[in-house]
Simulated assay, not measured.
Amino acid sequence: MDALSAAAFGVVLAATAGLRAFLPVFSASLFAWMTDLPLPDNLAWLERAQTVLIFGVATLLEILGDKIPIVDHALDGIQVLTKPVLAALAATPFIYQLAPEQSVAIGILLGAPLALGVHSAKATARLGSTATTAGVGNPLLSIAEDVAAVAAIVVGFLAPLLALLLMAVTIFFIVRLALRVRRRRRAAGSARS
């Protein structure tokens, strides 16, 4: 993977952290473990088998927990803090291929806001689903998020620049959906007043 493709893949991983916090870090760790991806010294632990296992288990627990309506809201609340950090962690090894000296700073400045933006839009859509379906639609929405996250990572690995373009389009539609849900909630609140 050339440096530009690696950086694009890092950005895709960061945005994907907005949907699933641990999946992108698990993917980055798995990629580092399976390949000869050069890592900064402070991230050499990412390529250890134990790290891959820990992030794999965390990914599985997050995916399963997100299917339970009460747990999904608790995860969304906690992950407001963790997703930006995990996004930066997932992106940094790949951005390192393009800009070694600034990789951590770029990972934090780019990855964290991307993940937080995607997470905010997703959480807003999830609240709308809870309000309109009494939580019954949340597991289906969660499965759609799983599929989108895995697809983004697979496409990001195979065609990073295409994945970056698709990610931008997806983020646009997620934000649009979140704004629509917000407008409906405000309109419903105004109608009750």
Rank of each mutant, 00 (worst) to 15 (best):
M1N: 05
A6Q: 15
A6V: 14
A6M: 09
A8F: 13
A8Y: 12
L13E: 08
T16N: 14
G18I: 06
G18V: 05
G18K: 08
L19A: 00
R20K: 07
L23S: 13
L23I: 02
P24T: 02
V25A: 12
V25C: 03
S27I: 01
S29D: 10
L30Q: 08
M34E: 10
M34S: 15
M34V: 09
T35L: 06
P38E: 15
L39V: 14
L39M: 10
D41E: 15
D41R: 12
A44Y: 06
W45R: 00
E47V: 06
A49V: 14
T51I: 01
T51A: 08
I54D: 01
V57R: 12
V57A: 09
A58P: 08
L61H: 04
E62I: 00
I63Y: 00
I63C: 00
K67M: 02
P69W: 03
I70C: 02
I70F: 02
V71I: 06
H73S: 15
A74S: 04
G77N: 10
G77R: 03
V80E: 03
L81S: 11
T82A: 13
T82Q: 09
P84L: 07
V85D: 13
L89P: 12
A90S: 15
A90M: 09
P93A: 11
Q97K: 03
L98M: 09
A99H: 02
P100K: 05
P100S: 11
P100E: 10
E101W: 08
E101H: 12
V104D: 03
V104S: 05
A105S: 15
A105D: 06
A105L: 14
I106D: 09
G117A: 01
V118F: 01
A121S: 10
A121L: 03
K122C: 00
A123R: 00
T124S: 07
A125T: 11
A125K: 00
G128W: 03
T130F: 13
T133A: 12
T133K: 13
V136W: 13
V136I: 07
V136Q: 05
G137Y: 07
L141E: 12
S142R: 01
A144Y: 00
E145F: 00
V147W: 01
A148K: 07
V154W: 13
V154S: 07
G156Y: 02
F157D: 03
A159C: 04
A159G: 08
L161P: 11
A163C: 06
A163R: 13
L164D: 08
L164K: 11
V169R: 10
T170H: 00
T170V: 04
F173M: 02
L177K: 02
L177V: 03
A178K: 00
L179R: 10
L179D: 10
V181R: 04
R183E: 12
R184H: 14
R185S: 06
A187F: 07
G189Y: 04
S190D: 15
S190N: 04
S193M: 09
